[in-house]
């Protein structure tokens, strides 16, 4: 048995999301980009877990179930992201996203 105020937890997850976004927007290294995404995703998972507890037994454990799914997906995403990193490295000799600027018209 334990009790937490929602404000604190939401502040934490908001802060983590913001840190993740900050990383996504400022880092040029592809691996750092992946890590930033992981931080943002963890912020979201935290919310699911907390609100599953918040809802209690009446709400079932759907929130935790979704968290399980999201963690699985995140792990998958890291695997694919690293595959992209390897391909990019082999193709350009660099994993700087600013150099891989072919995604334009």
């Amino acid at each position: 048995m334990s009790a937490f105020s929602p404000a604190g937890l939401l502040a934490l997850s908001g802060a983590l999301l913001s840190i993740g976004l900050f990383g996504i927007l400022t880092r040029r290294n592809f691996i750092l980009l992946l890590i930033s995404i992981e931080i943002a995703i963890n912020a979201a998972v935290l919310n699911f877990v907390y609100f599953a507890a918040f809802a209690g037994a009446t709400g079932g454990l759907t929130g935790q179930a979704i968290a399980v799914v999201v963690i699985g997906l995140a792990a998958t995403e890291v695997a694919v992201g690293l595959a992209i990193v390897l391909a990019l490295n082999r193709l350009r000799g660099s994993i700087n996203v600013a150099e891989a600027a072919t995604l334009k018209f």
């Binding site: 927007l25 996203v97 995604l103």
Partner: peptide, 14 residues
Amino acid sequence: VQTGVVSDYAAYVV
């Protein structure tokens, strides 16, 4: 506006 840099696109999304 279309730089081709993924981070910039992410910035637009955000």
